[in-house]
Design a protein around this nucleic acid. Structure first.
Lengths: 188, 188
DNA sequence: TAGTGTTTTTATCCTAGGTTAATAGAGATC
DNA sequence: GATCTCTATTAACCTAGGATAAAAACACTA
């Protein structure tokens, strides 16, 4: 998920790790490693300390579709699995060497309690999720692929350094061939 | 937003209204009334006691796009405005005579505290939002309009009694003409 | 009943993007 | 250097759905 104001920061997490005795674990994932697969339960909320993740799934035709990217200092999980007991349908892949903080449901709840006593940041976090998701639905309903591509390039240029164009294409909901055609038109 | 398991129930709300001294207000909205417009701040989380709401916005070409429907016993708000201070871009319209419970941010927080002490339903509520939104993005990326139409009809048949086909079309991200063509093909 | 506005359908034409298949480049590995 | 693999591009053709315009079907009102 892309960066939003209400994300926890690594600094906060590490402070709370001490003050709340969370005993958070970290994990190193190397480039191209798929560290979570569909069918496996997703026991963690992940904080990306460093690196870049891609989250994808397979559609009914067996095509790999990129659902999200998750960059440095953002958080991500499989809501299907982490919060609910529904089977996870998402694959999590590192697009470069990545450092993760793993947050279990129990640790997440402790943090949530902490929030409760201080402010509404957790709620804002969820609201941000909803807004980002809403905007993406609006975007795919109202903007042609070329426009979505240009916006992505403008707002998240770092993606283009690590993610390949097939990933970008499926994130935009088009084929690599179409993306290629769009890029060619933009060159002209 | 469509019904999810974790929604509050009217019964709970009314109980808490008493036990937590919330002093919740209700509001009657008649068919076709637009009771929230873009630009206005949205001070409430709405619980639809009875009736059916449509939430829409205008895209860059000035076309009215249906973003959500909200049926009986579901909750809805403008996350842009209720949680954050971003300007609201959504219009809320009643598709039939509708009874709403209005929940202010303050009342919502009281309820949230109540949750905190008992269970994780609030968090589940947000998680459900995220799941529903995620699924809709996947759907629009991977399913042709005909399939999305059939699924909507199967999962939410009540919509077709009150919402007009132009609403359904823009919810599906297509024009009324295309929807009409799809319906004709399905008849054949 | 006619008259007016709204929703839905039909028809024609057009375009964005899909499908298939081939080509070209860029690392890797031998 | 030669070969293999993976990614990106190109081209030819096709199709879902958009744009425009008009007709038909309702629905409300007088």
């Amino acid at each position: 998920m892309f960066k939003v104001d209400s994300y926890l920061t690594a600094k906060e997490l590490l402070e709370w790790n001490i003050s709340l005795h969370l005993q958070l674990e970290t994990r190193s994932v190397h480039e191209h490693e798929v560290f979570l697969e569909a069918g496996q339960s997703c026991p963690y909320f992940y904080y990306v300390l460093k690196g870049l993740l891609r989250v994808y799934y397979y559609d009914l035709n067996g095509h790999e579709m990129t659902h999200w990217f998750s960059a440095e200092d953002t958080m991500i999980t499989s809501p299907f699995s982490f919060f609910k007991n529904e089977p996870n349908i998402l694959y999590f892949e590192a697009l470069e060497d990545t450092e993760l903080i793993l947050i279990t449901r129990e640790q997440f709840n402790k943090i949530a309690s902490k929030f409760k006593s201080t402010d509404e940041r957790l709620r804002n976090l969820y609201a941000d999720f909803a807004m980002v998701l809403s905007r993406r639905i609006m975007s795919v309903h109202t903007e042609p692929a070329e426009e979505r591509y240009l916006k992505l390039m403008e707002e998240h240029p770092y993606l283009f350094q690590k993610a390949q164009l097939t990933h970008i294409a499926s994130y935009l909901g088009i084929t690599p061939q179409s993306l290629s055609r769009i890029r060619k038109n933009l060159m002209g």
